[in-house]
Amino acid sequence: MRKLLKHRILWPIGALLALVLLNAVSRPSFLSITVRDGELYGSLIDILRNSAPLMLVALGMTLVIATRGIDLSVGAQMAISGAVALTIISDSKTPGSLGTVAVAILAGVAITFIFGLWNGFLVSVVGIQPIIATLVLMLAGRGIALLITGGFITTITSAPYAQMSQGYLIGFPFAFFVSLGAILVISLVVRRTALGVLTESVGINPEASRLAGVRSRGIVWSVYGVSGLLAGVAGILYSSNIMAADANNAGINIELDAILAVVLGGTSLAGGKFTLAGTVVGVFIIQTLTSTITFLGVPPAVTPVFKALVVIVVCLAQSRRVREWLSRIRPTRTPTTTTTTPVVERIPA
């Protein structure tokens, strides 16, 4: 089992290392980390910080995809949670107090959690296809966010709120701890309880799982809730970074990056088996890539082309067929070692 996991995650890690290496060679400053007032600075630290919103969203997306679903509304949900939190803070008489900020954050996240549950309801109870069910909120979400802010881009000044994405804790960016916390909590919940295996079971064969007594509906329902909740936290981080609730740009296209990260990590869009570790690596690949492209002076509008290239390379590398083909043109390797998976399938009835 552990071997298999290693095997699956090998390629994404290879791609990440290759990217880091490319950067390190082309600009030696990439790897350097400086300490200022006990706080760490450098490109790598930036990647840790800036990847936090995508990390949260992609973790939720992994669970949703494992159940054969997809959540397109995460970007819109980010806009909503930011709008809610900032409206509360800006309406408050004490925008700088810790209490106000806590209430604002909780309210923002709670609302997206509820929206997530709404998605889950449409998918698991009403039986709408996930892509359509979440498309509704993807389209409506930014409008809802604009309604909340009254059509303006709400801006605030609040030191505790700024801390969320700009602050530091024991030398590292605070946002990094938020994503680290999410990774740890979700991994523990998924692997220490039976949630992981039941989610996989539902994703692999929903009907067989239902007949085995698994509460498939509850599981599908709740993964959308979790996805909404994480998107809400991501929205808080985003709005804290710019200290504004920008309904039109918060988390724009992040759903696509998140799906990309999940796939790069090795989780199949067909559902079933998933790997959180793979998703984490996938997020870092995307973030490093963005940083690389910015450094190379490529206009941001061209970024998608590079992302597409990486996706193609990693997906090809993960393809069983390509690997078989590669092993055939390398005669030194015996084919049995490189084609383990298909061979297992061939054991006769």
């Binding site: 220490r192 295996v197 698994v214 509460r215």
Partner: peptide
Amino acid sequence: LGVQAKRGWFRRV
């Protein structure tokens, strides 16, 4: 799976 489903997701076998 049957035993697990009966116990619910929270209490892993």
